[in-house]
Nucleic acid binder design. Structure first.
Length: 261
DNA sequence: ATGGTGGCGGTGCCA
């Protein structure tokens, strides 16, 4: 069972890249972020033609998440619990059956939080607390789950090409990192670090200032696994080559494989 | 060289 996450930065602009990547890499379940589209604007027919069921939580112009699955899926949430009336489209969660029991996949687009010292940063931290509560509820089931997406947090300075320049950024704040550790310390595993214990493993390169050719990247897209999922984790990857293609997203896909045969 | 890029929507906001 191959599970992937990708912040596509506008699904309409990325339809070609997305479909060719789906057809080439054939993940079983994919969560997408930053659709920047409402549900009717999503290229559903193209993605279905590639072999996927499509579930969308859309929003006009900003945010937007989706869950794609090659298998029957039950959507279990379209936001984190206790959403505000104007809750942004940042979370989707589904459940599929496997020979080893149910697998839940949550797709999330965590608030950026810049600039620090504003209500935007407070909202980020509050959203991380809500995500942690959701993780606790899922952990109580003692089943496989994966919380995947754009976390907008660089866990450590190793995950930042220039830690000094980013010291004041919301993605690198001690409070942001502490909130991510609180989530991890529930007993979750950062899948990429389970196979790559050190060194840069970037998933994002800014469009500006030649960040990609200079490899000035960040690791902000993560897959956090429950113990039951971690027990079946066999491989992980970052599809870095997507960043070098024409009209790329500024993020690349991150994936993991679980042996549930 | 205090800029630079990209997406949305049709101006400035967001990342």
């Amino acid at each position: 069972m191959k599970i992937a996450t990708w912040n596509v930065n506008s699904v309409r602009k990325r339809t070609g890249n997305l479909v060719s990547w789906l057809e080439r890499t054939t993940p079983d379940i994919v969560v997408l972020q930053e659709l920047k589209a409402q549900e009717p604007q999503f290229p559903k027919a193209e993605v279905e033609a590639a072999g996927y069921r499509v579930e969308i939580v859309g929003q006009k112009g900003f945010n937007g998440v989706a869950l794609l699955s090659r298998h029957p899926v039950e959507i279990t949430a379209r936001s984190l619990p206790d959403p505000a009336e104007d809750e942004p489209a940042r979370y989707i969660e589904g459940r599929v059956d496997t020979p080893k029991g149910p697998l839940t996949v949550g797709g999330l687009y965590l608030p950026n939080g810049n600039p620090i010292g504003t209500e935007k940063f407070a909202y980020k931290i509050a959203w991380m607390d809500r995500l942690t509560q959701r993780a606790k509820a899922l952990l109580a089931r003692e089943e496989m789950f994966v919380l995947a997406g754009d976390y907008n947090v660089c866990p450590t300075d190793v995950d930042v090409f220039n830690p000094v320049a980013f010291a004041g950024d919301a993605l690198c704040q001690p409070q942001s990192r502490a909130a991510l550790r609180t989530l991890l310390n529930l007993g979750l595993t950062d899948a990429i670090r389970a196979f790559n214990i050190d060194g840069p493993q970037y998933t994002y390169w800014d469009y500006q200032a030649g960040a990609w050719p200079k490899d000035n990247g960040l690791r902000i897209d993560h897959m956090l696994l429950s113990p039951q999922a971690t027990d079946r984790l066999t491989a992980v990857g970052i599809d870095k080559a997507e960043r070098g293609k024409a009209e790329p997203s500024d993020h690349v896909p991150v994936w993991c494989e679980l042996d549930v045969a």
